[in-house]
Simulated scan of single mutants.
Amino acid sequence: MTTHRLLEGRRVLVTGGARGLGFAFAQALATAGARVVIADILSERVQQAAAELQAQDLDVSGVTVDLANPASITACAAETVQRLGGLDGLVNNASITNSGGKTCEELSIDTFDQVMQVNVRGTWLMTVACLPALRESGRGAVVNLASDTPLWGATNLLAYVASKGAVIAMTRSLARELGKDNITVNAIAPGLVLVEATAYVPEARHRLYTEQRALQRAQLPDDVSGAVIFALSDLARFITGQTLPVNGGFVMP
């Protein structure tokens, strides 16, 4: 992927960066010139991921965060700003699924609440924790990772679908609220991406995505990275409150 150093000098926090999409984002953003902090609940893995990217001469470091814990979120934001000397971009990538394969009747209240706590409340609180630094930047950009599942109504995944639908709605509200601070807020809605987190997904659903896409192939992490780079760059400074499906044409809203 050619990025032309679109993010030269930008300071960016990526949550859920220890593996999967978050790791791919961190690698792509740093390759595009950004200084990146990756945050993840997997404390050992996040340090390993940071070391792996540092070995590629990329400016990436790792911190631990628990998005279910407000104090941990506040501490993560503060440490990130201290390390980077400020913050220009936030990628709210971290989320959990937990409800996959269960019908709406089988889904437990505890599971539903846990998914909402991490995916929705965690995204909100991390954004709020980073706001002072994003305001000070003068070119702050927030990218929320949504999903195309609420755009087509995926079945047997209710808690996750509801949480990502909430992220899309929250993106619009935050964009309205933070526009006065010259902060853009946009959502990226990937399709089913081949990463560790989707290993549990039945083959039938992988096949459904591949066969029904306009671009009939599997979706890889690098297929999403370009959209995140764009949303954080000066090329997107007049784009806010939008949701961009990146799914090979599976959903065309």
Rank of each mutant, 00 (worst) to 15 (best):
N156W: 08
W124M: 11
N92S: 13
T31I: 12
A175T: 12
T171R: 00
L13T: 00
A154Y: 06
H4Y: 04
L107W: 13
L158V: 08
H4W: 08
T184H: 08
V60N: 03
E8G: 05
G138E: 04
D181Y: 15
E177Y: 05
V37D: 01
A71R: 13
K180Y: 07
I239T: 13
L215D: 10
A129H: 06
T2L: 15
T210N: 12
V63L: 12
D57M: 02
L107C: 12
A162E: 13
V46Q: 04
V161E: 05
Q54M: 14
G191M: 06
V228I: 09
L7Y: 03
A26L: 15
V195T: 15
T2Y: 13
A75V: 07
T15P: 06
I96T: 11
S173V: 15
V81S: 09
Q216C: 01
N182S: 06
D110Y: 09
N93K: 06
P245Q: 05
G165H: 13
V81D: 04
T3E: 07
G22K: 02
S108F: 09
V161M: 08
D113E: 15
I96D: 04
V36P: 02
F230Y: 15
A175Q: 13
A169S: 08
D223R: 01
P253S: 00
V246W: 07
W152H: 01
Q242K: 10
R217V: 10
D110C: 10
S173T: 14
V115F: 07
V36Y: 07
V60H: 06
S95H: 12
G153I: 08
C76R: 10
V91I: 06
T210R: 13
S108Y: 06
R45K: 01
S225Q: 01
I73D: 08
A204S: 15
V65N: 08
A129W: 03
S72G: 11
Q117P: 02
P150K: 03
P70T: 07
V161W: 02
V161G: 04
R172Q: 14
A159T: 05
N92W: 09
E196K: 14
G153A: 11
V195C: 15
F23T: 02
V246E: 07
